[in-house]
């Protein structure tokens, strides 16, 4: 089998995943985008492995690792998103975080500029 097809599929997955990550404000959809990217990585690994005929089977092993990690990620992510939903009532990623307001407190006199004479 030509490697072109799986690689093209991987590229397609990457594109879709990037779109998901970049364009979706919904947290879960973003998560799906990430999963697509991971899938592309796995696909590439497996393809390359079969293509190169490596004896150690590193490619498939790594793919399995990625899948496992992805599962773990999803668990944590969903837990966090759930908590977010409980707190805010939405899982929109395009909302300013509450605590991100900068503290510009009073001590700027520490480095006043030299005034012109």
């Amino acid at each position: 089998m030509s490697p072109a097809l799986p690689m093209m599929l991987a590229a397609l997955l990457v594109g879709a995943g990037l779109y998901g990550v970049l364009a979706r404000r919904h947290a879960v959809l973003m998560l799906i985008g990430v999963e697509l990217l991971l899938a592309a990585a796995g696909l590439m690994l497996v393809t390359a492995d079969s293509l190169l005929g490596a004896e150690t089977g590193s490619g498939p092993v790594a793919t399995i690792f990625i899948i496992t990690i992805a599962a773990a990620e999803v668990v944590v992510a969903l837990a966090v998103f759930t908590a977010l939903y409980r707190l805010r009532g939405h899982v929109d990623l395009d909302v300013r975080a509450a605590a991100a307001e900068p503290d510009r407190s009073d001590f700027d006199e520490a480095d006043g500029e030299v005034p012109a004479r």
Partner: peptide, 23 residues
């Protein structure tokens, strides 16, 4: 939670990049 989301999303995307890099 915002803190966690910020860290989480970044780490997710970064992990994906790392996985692609590994591949």
């Amino acid at each position: 939670i915002d803190a966690a989301v910020a860290l989480l999303t970044t780490s997710l995307a970064s992990f994906a990049l790392l996985a692609l890099g590994a591949a």
